[in-house]
């Protein structure tokens, strides 16, 4: 039995030799430089704080009692939750604007796509200029008379997090907009006419025609953006540094500054688990057919 299936397997291979040769470099690279390192990082996280003690949970035990780690965990979840919701709302508003026909629409679309042409590290430094105490936002608020004394955006529990959320929104709302716009353009205009005839107002048409038909696109935007939001790195690192750690920058500080690869690996592994849990919970809630189909 096993011999039969083995020879069948060999026949399969020789029949598809050409394809296998073509695919081999790609497969080797992905296994060697993506899957391999991930497994290595997970194994390292069980080696203890100083390494070589496999298997032990010492690194995990160390970081979960580290107040810095708790802050990173909270900040990551806050930025992901608040950021994703706001990006979806604003992405939807922008997509709805662009679905209209108006004078200067082409220019508006081009302007909205500007952030896609700005490297993340550059947008991080730009936002640092804006949210500095002597920065442009404080000056704007002062000139329109909302504040007398400049606000220090780096202190407090929520303020620095909100600056990071705004920075992330600036960079990625255009992407959410593009995804939702693709969805809006796929909706048959006759459906709106039909709803209008049935007496549905603007809001009802949006709520009962647009939203249900956009669901697969919303799912796509949420999954793609959700993964990236959990992994957010440059923006908090540049804008707030050690004041506002997130999971990625926590792993970075542990390795680069505290020179401890093993606790860094534990932080990265926890982040991976968070992403997997979030995606599985979400996909379970909305059903997988929307992603694969």
């Amino acid at each position: 039995m096993s011999f039969v299936s083995f020879s069948f397997f060999l026949k399969r291979i020789s029949k598809n030799k050409f394809e296998i040769i073509l695919i081999l470099p790609l497969a080797l690279f992905v296994f060697g430089f993506t899957i391999g390192p991930i497994i290595q990082a997970i194994l390292m996280s069980f080696e203890g704080i100083f390494g070589g003690n496999f298997p032990t949970l010492a690194s995990y035990n160390y970081i979960i009692h580290h107040h810095y780690f708790k802050a990173a965990l909270f900040n990551t979840i806050f930025i992901t939750g608040v950021g994703l919701s706001l990006e979806l709302i604003f992405g939807m508003i922008l997509a709805l604007i662009l679905a209209e026909k108006f004078f200067g629409r082409g220019i508006f679309r081009a302007v909205m796509l500007l952030p896609l042409g700005i490297p993340t590290i550059v947008s991080a430094s730009n936002m640092a200029f804006i949210f500095s105490t002597q920065g442009f936002l404080n000056e704007l608020l002062y000139r329109i008379g909302l504040i007398e004394v400049p606000i220090d955006w780096r202190v407090g529990a929520i303020k620095p997090l909100m600056t990071i959320v705004v920075a992330d929104m600036w960079k990625v709302t255009p992407l959410v907009m593009l995804i939702l716009l693709a969805g809006l353009e796929s909706i048959d205009k006759q459906l709106y006419e039909a709803a209008k005839v049935d007496g549905a107002g603007r809001w009802h048409r949006f709520r009962h025609v647009t939203l249900p038909l956009l669901r697969p696109y919303i799912t796509m935007a949420l999954v793609i953006r959700g993964i990236d939001a959990f992994r957010i790195f440059e923006l908090p690192l540049v804008m707030a540094g050690r004041h506002v750690p997130v999971m990625s920058s926590y792993a970075y500080f542990e390795y680069i500054e505290r020179n401890n690869p093993y606790t860094s690996a534990a932080g990265a592994t926890i982040l991976l688990i968070m992403i997997i849990i979030a995606i599985s919970v979400y996909l379970k809630a909305v059903g997988t057919e929307e992603v694969t189909g």
Binding site: V30, F33, T34, I35, G36, P37, I38, Q40, A41, M44, I227, F230, R231, F233, M247, S248, A251, Y252, Y255, P261, S264, A265, G267, A268, T269, L271, L272, I275, I276, I279, T292
Partner: peptide, 26 residues
């Protein structure tokens, strides 16, 4: 094909700091 392409896409799920760390060590 579909699982393969989706699998490639999901390599993006891995935190980059988790890949960059062992890469840097190696």
């Amino acid at each position: 094909r579909y699982p393969l392409v989706l699998g490639l896409f999901f390599t993006r799920m891995f935190p980059e700091v988790g890949i960059a760390l062992p890469i840097s060590v190696n």
